[in-house]
Computed example of a mutant assay.
Amino acid sequence: MRALARRLVVLGFSIASVMAAAPAGADSEETIKAFSAWQGRGQVFETSEFGATFVGSFSGIIYVETEKGPLDAGFMICPAIVTIDMRDGSQDAKGRCTIVAKDSSRAYADIACKGVHLVGCDGDFTFTGGTERFAGITGGGPVTIRSSLHEIPAGAGNVVQESAGGIIVWPKLTYKLPEPAAGAQ
């Protein structure tokens, strides 16, 4: 449990101030399992004869799995675009995420997945940078997103306000933080 707690602090997902006093060494790769129950809002536009596009965002609290159960690790928000083929229900999604830790450090990531409308998608989550303790973060891993989007009504020129919820799971999220410069804390 202590080793896992140290990894959480290095990632910046501060759970308690006691854990912050003993971070794991930087420049080492760590892997965690995490998830978030998210809520989303946006609009669905008819964008071709057989296609629709969702433009919006999803957000939620991120939980990291530990031996003692899930622990609140921070908050994420991800603006995203999902294109949907109405003939076969296939979808392709891309987004950019900001993860805010308890101490306001931020990690940024790209997310991309493919799947089936009304079911969800599977893809990749890639860290692209960060601030404060997350400066220089790299890594990523597979991601699974499940959603409760509704059927898109048929008809020309449809624009539909959409609210949805779901879960995002990172079964094996790997990250690496660079070694602090000499003299840095």
Rank of each mutant, 00 (worst) to 15 (best):
L149S: 07
V143I: 12
I168A: 02
G155I: 07
G155N: 04
T128D: 05
K94M: 05
P180F: 01
V119Y: 10
T31D: 01
D103Q: 06
D103P: 08
G155Q: 03
R96N: 14
E49G: 15
W38V: 02
Q39Y: 09
L149D: 02
H117N: 05
I84L: 05
A184E: 13
V116D: 09
G140P: 04
S17R: 15
L71F: 11
P180G: 01
F58D: 11
D122P: 00
F125K: 02
F127I: 03
S147T: 13
A52T: 06
T174I: 12
I62T: 08
A93P: 00
M76R: 08
A107P: 00
W170P: 00
T31V: 04
W170S: 00
L173K: 00
S105P: 04
A73G: 03
Q43Y: 07
R2C: 08
C78R: 00
R87G: 02
Q91L: 11
V100C: 07
G157D: 00
P23H: 10
G74P: 03
L149P: 01
S48K: 13
S28V: 14
S104R: 12
R41E: 12
V44M: 04
I32F: 03
E162S: 14
S57I: 00
L11E: 06
V169H: 07
T53C: 09
R87L: 09
T131F: 03
A164Y: 15
T126A: 14
A184L: 11
M86R: 13
G166T: 08
G60N: 04
K68C: 05
K176M: 05
S90R: 09
G139K: 07
T66F: 05
V159K: 10
E46F: 05
V159E: 09
E30V: 06
A109S: 12
I81G: 09
W170G: 01
G123F: 00
A22S: 12
V18H: 11
E162M: 10
N158K: 14
A5L: 14
V82S: 02
A107M: 03
A164G: 12
V18C: 14
D103V: 01
T131Q: 04
E65G: 03
T126S: 15
S48T: 14
S14N: 13
Q185S: 15
A20N: 13
F75A: 10
I62E: 04
Q185D: 12
V160T: 11
A164H: 12
A164E: 13
Q161L: 14
Y175W: 04
I32G: 04
F58Q: 08
G139S: 08
S163K: 14
R146H: 13
E162R: 01
